[in-house]
C-alpha cells in the first residue's frame, strides 16, 4: 500500500515535470512577442527590450525554465506576464470554479448514466432503444451548442437561472448551485451519453455471466442481483471510464466556461495560451495534472474496493 502510494507519487511527479517542461518549450515565445502584447502597438523596440529586461525575459530560455522550476518546487509559480496577480493566487481563485462544474458534472454524469445504463441493459426493448437514441444524440451535439441553447431558454427567456458568472459556495450555497446548474448540464450531456453506453455494455456483460445465473438459481432477489451484484461488478469498468470522463470534462470546461463567462481554469488556459502567458499556463497545466493524478488515485482506491482482485501495486 505504501509502495503503491509511492509509485503513484513518483508517477505524478514525473507527469507534472514532463507536462510542464513540454508546455514551457511549446508555448515559450520570443520575449518581444510577449512584451509587444503587454505594451501594445505603439511601443518601440527599446521599450520592448526594457520591459523584457525588467521581467527577466532576456535571459536564456533554459535559465528561465530552471528558475521557474526552482520556484515551483517551493510553491512559487511566479507571476503572470500580463497582470500583477501571482500565478498561485490566480489558481486559487480559478480552481474552485472549474472543479465545481467538473466534479459536479462527473457526479451527475455517473448517477444519470448509471440509472439510464442499467435501465437500458435490464429492460431492453423499447426503453433500450430510447436510451440508445438519446445517447447518440447526446454524443452528436457539440457542447457549446447545448450551452447556448440552455442560456437562451433558461436564462434569457425564462430568467430562471443566471446567464453568466460564478458564485462561491462560501458566499451563497443556493447562488453557487444556481450558477453552476446550466454549465454542469451542458458539460455533462455528452459525458452522460458516452457513459450510459459504457454502463449499459458493462451491465449486459455482467448480467450474462455465469455467477449472475447462479445467483438467480439460488433464489437471490432480482433487486439485489441488479444493484448489489451486477452494479458492483460493472462498477470497475465504469470507474475507469469515469476517470477518463473526468479528464475529458476538464477539456469540455474550456468551452463551457466561455459561454457562461466563468472565471475558471479553462478560460485562464485559453487566454494564457493566446497571449503566451507562460507562467500562468504552466501553473494551469501543473494544477490540472495534480488534480487528474489525485482523482485517478481516488478511482484506483475505489476500484480496489469494488474489485477484490485488484491489488494496489
Amino acid at each position: 500500500m505504501i509502495a503503491f502510494a509511492l509509485r503513484r507519487l513518483l508517477f505524478g511527479l514525473s507527469l507534472i515535470l514532463f507536462a510542464t517542461t513540454a508546455t514551457f518549450f511549446l508555448v515559450y515565445r520570443d520575449a518581444s512577442l510577449v512584451t509587444r502584447n503587454i505594451l501594445g502597438e505603439g511601443a518601440t523596440q527599446a521599450d520592448l527590450d526594457a520591459r523584457a529586461a525588467a521581467m527577466g525575459l532576456d535571459r536564456p530560455i533554459l535559465v528561465q525554465f530552471l528558475d521557474w522550476l526552482g520556484g515551483a518546487v517551493t510553491g512559487d509559480f511566479g507571476q503572470s506576464y500580463f497582470s500583477t496577480e501571482s500565478v498561485a493566487s490566480i489558481l486559487v481563485s480559478r480552481v474552485p470554479v472549474t472543479l465545481s462544474i467538473v466534479a459536479v458534472g462527473v457526479l451527475v454524469s455517473a448517477l444519470v448514466s448509471a440509472v439510464l445504463g442499467i435501465l437500458a441493459a435490464v429492460r431492453g426493448g423499447v426503453i433500450d432503444r430510447i436510451v440508445q437514441v438519446l445517447s447518440v444524440i447526446g454524443m452528436a451535439l457539440p457542447n457549446f451548442w447545448v450551452a447556448l441553447m440552455l442560456v437562451v431558454v433558461f436564462a434569457v427567456t425564462w430568467r430562471l437561472l443566471p446567464a453568466t458568472g460564478y458564485v462561491s459556495p462560501a458566499q451563497s450555497v443556493s447562488g453557487w448551485l444556481a450558477s453552476i446548474t446550466l454549465p454542469v448540464i451542458a458539460l455533462a450531456v455528452a459525458s452522460i451519453a458516452a457513459a450510459t453506453q459504457q454502463v449499459r455494455g458493462a451491465m449486459i456483460d455482467v448480467l450474462d455471466t455465469d455467477y449472475i445465473r447462479t445467483l438467480r438459481a439460488s433464489g437471490v432477489r432480482e433487486r439485489s442481483i441488479l444493484f448489489r451484484h451486477a452494479l458492483k461488478n460493472a462498477a470497475s469498468p465504469a470507474l475507469t471510464v469515469l476517470s477518463l470522463q473526468f479528464i475529458g470534462l476538464f477539456g469540455g470546461a474550456i468551452v463551457i466556461e466561455k459561454v457562461f463567462a466563468l472565471p475558471g481554469l479553462g478560460t485562464t488556459a485559453v487566454n494564457a495560451t493566446l497571449q503566451g502567458d507562460v507562467p500562468v499556463l504552466l501553473g494551469v497545466v501543473a494544477v490540472t495534472v495534480v488534480i487528474v493524478v489525485a482523482v485517478n488515485l481516488l478511482i484506483d482506491l475505489a476500484n480496489g474496493w469494488v474489485n477484490p482482485k485488484v491489488t494496489l501495486r
Binding site: S172, A261, L262
Partner: peptide, 25 residues
C-alpha cells in the same frame, strides 16, 4: 491601443478571464 483592443479583440491587452460573479439575476 486602447480602441484596438476593443476592435481587434485580440491584438493587445489581457482578455478578461470571463466572469461576472453574480449568480442571481
Amino acid at each position: 491601443i486602447a480602441a484596438a483592443v476593443a476592435l481587434a479583440g485580440c491584438s493587445t491587452g489581457t482578455p478578461a478571464p470571463e466572469d461576472t460573479g453574480a449568480a442571481d439575476t
